[in-house]
Amino acid sequence: MKILIIEDEQGLRESIEEYFMEAGNICETASNYREAIAKVSLYNYDCILLDITLPGGNGIEILKYLKQNDHTDGILIISAKNSLDDRLEGLDLGADDYLVKPFHLSELRARVSAIIRRKTFNGSNLLIFNEITIDLLAKTVKAHNQSIKLTRKEYALLLYFIANKGKVVSKNAIAEHLWGDGIDLANNFDFIYSHIKNLRKKLMEAGSNDYIQAAYGMGYKFTDQ
């Protein structure tokens, strides 16, 4: 996939670029308004990560420019502004999603994957990872054509893992993805472990390989290597 990262904060831009950089992905970056406009008018991207506050202009203007020129690029706004108005304005203008800073890179990756899936699969609702097939519309999972009954959280967890395949995903990020803001109430993340254990058990019972690896007590990695 081809991604454009429009973000003025160098540290964040580089982290995002590094996280998305892998075989088959092309990442380009823009650090200011002018550069961003130049890039979006020259090329098409699968997904554009758009920061709102930029030197030299407003990200919303870039969004308007894209929509006026009928670009079909997926657009994910990443902004420090967490007000409903900003969010609604962005989505009304045609952004696909809105992510508030600070965020986990794995969360960003999951959101980008969701946008690209919606854009490119167009009609087909199947997400396939080796022997695992997920019907995104019916929200059903099969391994080797054998149905697997997953709970809502296990299903969300599987999608999250597949979007971040090959990456170490922190327990923190998983917990926030599944439980939202309430997660700081927990004494520890033990109950995440039980969800992961259940998911792994169900996948393996259906004949799938064991893709979930624990990563040094910090998180988990979903990988087929």
Partner: peptide, 24 residues
């Protein structure tokens, strides 16, 4: 918010590198 976002993303990047000891 911005520096926090940077710290967060750097941590996410850091855990992708190699293996860590229990203490780390």
């Amino acid at each position: 918010l911005t520096p926090i976002a940077v710290i967060n993303s750097k941590l996410d990047t850091l855990i992708q590198t190699d293996s860590f000891s229990g203490q780390q």
